[in-house]
Nucleic acid binder design. Structure first.
Lengths: 215, 215
DNA sequence: CATATCTGAAAACATCTGTTTTCAGATATG
DNA sequence: CATATCTGAAAACAGATGTTTTCAGATATG
């Protein structure tokens, strides 16, 4: 409440900068932990501070609690993924297969370069209901992003229910990317993206309800 | 080690029976908790005993620890689901669409009748690596069970890697069933099964690797 | 140099959990 | 009836964790 008055220079660095760097160190450490296969149960205050090389004291300087850090980490990863994927899809030729492939390729490349991000987005066991909601929301976002032609066909709304087709695609992609990160799937990135693109397309081209309106 | 000597009659019931009933009460209570949306982090010894109406003392009579109970609950649910689904698939006409529909219908009906089972199998956030491994194994089992014609085509081995197609189907079905249980999907059971059957078929009919062998 | 702030480490306190043990009362058995 | 076992509830103990506070030393500022 009355903290903006102090903040001296220390070690030649401004107070705001030191705080911001500590915050970033905590987010990085949080990503290390959330991006491991232990799930978010291992995200402890002491643990993340040790990983960040900071004193416990500084945790509450930047975050109100465990959940606040988890959300910050998740948002940090999602935001970057959304930005780059949107750019890749936009830059791709105006054709369903090309756009889907471009988006999937961006995701595959990103999580291959930093598996922590992939595990956080797709495979980490989240017990935190806030994080689960974020994942649902961002899944919806990506499904819309990648399947914008499906959106045009079927009229998927971002606010109302998701079609079973979209749910299926999101779940299928998550599972496939997770297995790929695990090493369970012995595919190179190129073939993974090819394969997922074809499956995505095949599902998209199904009529939403063969015998009439779906509800 | 030397417990099989005692076990008196109490309340008109044999000692073995009392133990077995307490074990069943604990498994039921464990299913209540694991089948809630809190994930397996809420499966505490005190909690499950309270839910079962038993004293903490009796937990370790039947289980070595938290993990042992979790595994017992999971196996209990999986075993029943596998048995009834296998029966449904076997009884269905010898045709891919009919067999897939029969299997999916059995799963949908079972989890609609007891959502705890569905949430445990598909949606609960599992931080327990033992449970995660069980889920992978049983997913493999069900994918093979439902897609036996795909198995014949692609030669899916239960011991080696799973094809990306199978991973996609398992993940897609899990996500879709989860959303259906949540109420996110406003479909009746019939349409859900129809839709999943068509998607399943469409994916199955894709060639595994359009440009050659997959690895 | 004197004082105020910052830093790192650790202590402190409460709570939750796993696990074992105690104990008074209920029940069966000789 | 006397004794051994069973039951339910709770206490006890250790460890992990969230969260706040203390404290000695480092660093900047007047």
């Amino acid at each position: 409440m009355a903290e903006e008055t102090s903040l001296r220079v220390y070690g030649g660095v401004e107070g705001d900068e030191r705080q911001a760097e500590r915050r970033m160190q905590l987010i990085e450490a949080g990503l290390d932990i959330l991006g491991s296969d232990s799930g978010d149960a291992s995200l402890t205050v002491r643990g993340v501070c040790k990983q960040a090389g900071l004193a416990t004291r500084y945790f509450y300087e930047s975050f109100a609690g465990r959940d606040a850090l988890a959300i910050a980490v998740y948002d940090h990863v999602i935001e970057e993924m959304a930005t780059t994927t949107l750019a890749a899809v936009t830059a791709a030729p105006a054709e369903a297969r090309a756009k889907i492939r471009a988006g999937l390729e961006n995701i595959a490349r990103t999580i291959a370069a930093d598996p922590r991000r992939g595990r956080l987005l797709f495979s980490v066991a989240l017990t935190n209901s806030l994080l689960l909601h974020r994942r649902v929301h961002s899944s919806r976002l990506f499904a819309g992003l990648l399947g914008d032609q499906a959106k045009a066909f079927y009229g998927i709304s971002e606010e109302t229910d998701i079609e079973p087709t979209t749910q299926f695609i999101v779940g299928g992609l998550s599972q496939t990317f997770t297995a790929w990160l695990d090493g369970t799937l012995e595919l190179d990135q190129r073939r993974l993206v090819d394969r997922c693109t074809e499956i995505f397309l095949a599902i998209s081209e199904l009529r939403p309800a063969p015998s009439g309106r779906s509800h």
